[in-house]
Design a protein around this nucleic acid. Structure first.
Lengths: 208, 208
DNA sequence: TTTTATTTGTACGCTTCCGTTCATTTTGCT
DNA sequence: AGCAAAATGAACGGAAGCGTACAAATAAAA
């Protein structure tokens, strides 16, 4: 966990570390933890195997760092949720569209595919994912809904329950078809339509 | 695929085949495809390694049969959906409760965890899962909703969309917390409550 | 009892991969 | 230019696991 943190002034090293992480992500997401090999990662990063081991303790460590990096990108995405001066419906639509766009990315789908399998091996990694992904999103939604409820725009009994309903309506069972099928993808219009349907249904449930 | 079908009159053999499949399921679901070993499976089944290979062609074949067995159990579960003379709400509640009970089983969670990772390795296996799981469920729901709609009990534009909304409302993001967390489980009352909330919300959206 | 199918244990060849060592070379910094 | 950090290639030990071969033992069926 602390290897690449050892301060390195060389810009070349930092570039190589990043390239190793990129290659590792590609290999892990394509083949899973067990089937991915350090040599393949090194080759993809155009780096020698020894270099990989000089920056990362072992395979587990490398995988953990890839997960950490990916989770950070998730958190960054879900954090943006500042309600502006726009209507509640517009804000919810924006959130729904954002969820769909982000979660339907091929990269995200592969990430979820692989990570699930590694939870039994290392449960902490699953918790890390939950904290930075679903929990961050639900917390942001909950805050938003609480505010709107206090303004009297909607009727919300339990904001967390309502937030989860929102996410459930937006994604539906789509994630299943993404994870277990292949090449499933919706056009931008389809995603827009789906978002609108979900938002309108949710608003209907929570109207004052 | 056709190995154990070779007719065997010996009852002992059939018992051993079943024990191998059970052991394989346990090992695969616990460790994933790559990390599970034939020797461990043989040991767990209290059978020699050679016996495993005499009934199953190779590791892939064994895994495929485990998946097939599991998918059959899914299809059997989701097929039961005959609407009786009970109220629509009661039928939907029954379906929602059934979904939650079935999908929250530890065994099911482990199955989904492992299977997702193997989709890249063998996409057909993912399609097989989708056919016997989600698609079977959605088809059954769609049929039910269409009938209720024709009876004028609810207002349904696109039955498939409504069916997916139903499933989405029932499960919400629960499957995420099941798959990536551990020990997540709801009491029978909590599941009942969740089912009621989902059904009532769904009925509100679809009221005439 | 004899015959036949099935199971077992052991051992083997083969491959793959992890993580390390070491001598050498390249690279960036001052 | 000179120095220290970093990268390389090749090779190695060791472990693990797949799938097979074979001879011996066991159990069912005739």
């Amino acid at each position: 966990m602390t290897h690449p943190q050892a301060r390195t002034n060389r810009r070349d090293s930092q570039r190589k570390i990043a390239e190793i992480l990129d290659a590792a992500r590609a290999e892990f997401f394509q083949n899973g933890f067990s089937a991915a090999t350090i040599e393949a990662i090194a080759a993809r990063a155009e780096v020698s195997k020894v270099t990989v081991y000089s920056w990362f303790k072992d395979k587990d460590n490398l995988f953990a760092q890839v997960v950490r990096q990916e989770c950070d990108s998730m958190r960054r995405n879900f954090a943006v949720d500042n309600l502006e001066d726009r209507s509640l419906r517009a804000i919810l639509l924006h959130a729904a569209k954002g969820m769909l766009d982000f979660l339907m990315r091929e990269e995200m789908v592969r990430f979820e595919r692989i990570l699930a399998a590694e939870v039994s091996r290392d449960p902490k990694i699953g918790e890390y994912f939950l904290d930075n992904g679903p929990r961050t999103l639900l917390a942001a939604l909950t805050r938003l809904l609480t505010m709107a409820s206090e303004k009297g725009e909607i009727r919300v009994e339990d904001p967390l329950v309502s937030a989860e309903m929102f996410a459930g309506l937006v994604m539906g069972r789509l994630d299943l078809f993404l994870r277990y099928g292949q090449g499933v993808c919706l056009s931008a219009e389809d995603r827009q339509k789906r978002a609108e349907r979900a938002v309108d249904a949710w608003l209907l449930i929570h109207q004052v």
